[in-house]
């Protein structure tokens, strides 16, 4: 919610104060900061409901078909998920640190913390890319496009069975090679997996874009102990992205 940060270039007439970063309709910096903070919390509230829809779909399908989720999770790489959790937690630390640096007028520290946060965000996306590309390469798609290859079935140690595997066009030939018992509607797990992590990934990308803008302003020297709202608000958004991942990790990767 960068709108909280509008510098009042809009000439709403007579500006008594000299600080261009204080919008004309606020009494002082504290007033502007409090209002902006309320705005960003409201925004985070709606983000929660937005993700809430996916968590709802997740709980219903897992509640009704836990076996599908147990089998689906075998296709995910827990180690990569755990590393990504740590990367994201570290970026949250640097994001919180950037707020501290801004409050203390520490311009160098602020820039360093932002750069580290952006770096971690890219690291997170990089690891996610490795995971995604492996799955997509092996035919582990969402929904109707789910046609896993033999290699990844073996890699995931999916219980061998006697049911013939459906062909690419979805037809089942009883004479076809009998490879593995796939739980019916296993693709639903991957629909949910790709929707949840994909939407989370889009939020990470959005976070990177906002942080690049904050970085530019930090280098320009816009922020100080009196005016650091945008740094704080962006960090709050970033923590929410972290918060969502804190739940996604055990829900998707750590299924027993």
């Amino acid at each position: 919610m960068d709108a909280a940060a509008h510098e009042s270039h809009d000439a709403h007439g007579h500006d008594h104060h000299h600080d261009p970063r204080l919008a004309h309709h606020f009494e002082d910096h504290q007033h502007q900061f409090d209002t902006g903070k309320l705005g960003i919390w409201l925004f985070l509230g709606q983000e929660l409901l937005f993700f809430g829809g996916l968590f709802c779909a997740y709980s219903i399908y897992r509640g009704l078909h836990p076996e599908v989720f147990e089998e689906g999770a075998k296709f995910l790489n827990t180690n990569l998920g755990a590393v990504n959790t740590v990367v994201l937690l570290f970026s949250s630390l640097t994001a919180a640190w950037s707020v501290r640096a801004a409050q203390l007028n520490n311009k160098k520290g602020l820039i360093l913390a932002i750069v580290l946060t952006i770096g971690c965000a890219f690291g997170f996306l990089g690891i996610k890319y490795v995971e995604y590309s492996h799955k997509l390469h092996e035919g582990v798609f969402w929904g109707q496009s789910f046609h896993p290859t033999r290699e990844i079935l073996e890699e995931a140690h999916v219980t061998p069975g006697v049911v013939p595997m459906p062909a690419e066009d979805g037809s089942v030939d009883p004479k076809a090679e009998k490879i593995a018992m796939l739980k019916p509607n296993l693709h639903t797990f991957f629909s949910i997996y790709f929707m949840m992590t994909g939407l989370h990934g889009i939020h990470v990308i959005a976070g990177i874009l906002v942080y690049l803008w904050i970085l530019r302003r930090a280098i320009r020297g816009d922020f100080n102990s009196e005016y650091y709202g945008p740094v704080d608000f962006t960090a709050l958004y970033w923590h929410l992205v972290d918060l969502v991942w804190i739940y996604l990790f055990p829900l998707l990767y750590l299924i027993h």
Binding site: F50, G53, L54, W142, G143, Q144, P184, N185, H187, S191
Partner: peptide, 26 residues
């Protein structure tokens, strides 16, 4: 926001056959 995620799911469902709401896909 719940409407937003609903329609996003519907669009993705229609475009890529996600199978969250479509009984033919479970």
């Amino acid at each position: 926001p719940v409407l937003a995620i609903t329609l996003l799911l519907l669009t993705v469902e229609r475009a890529f056959g996600l199978g969250i709401f479509d009984p033919a896909l479970g």
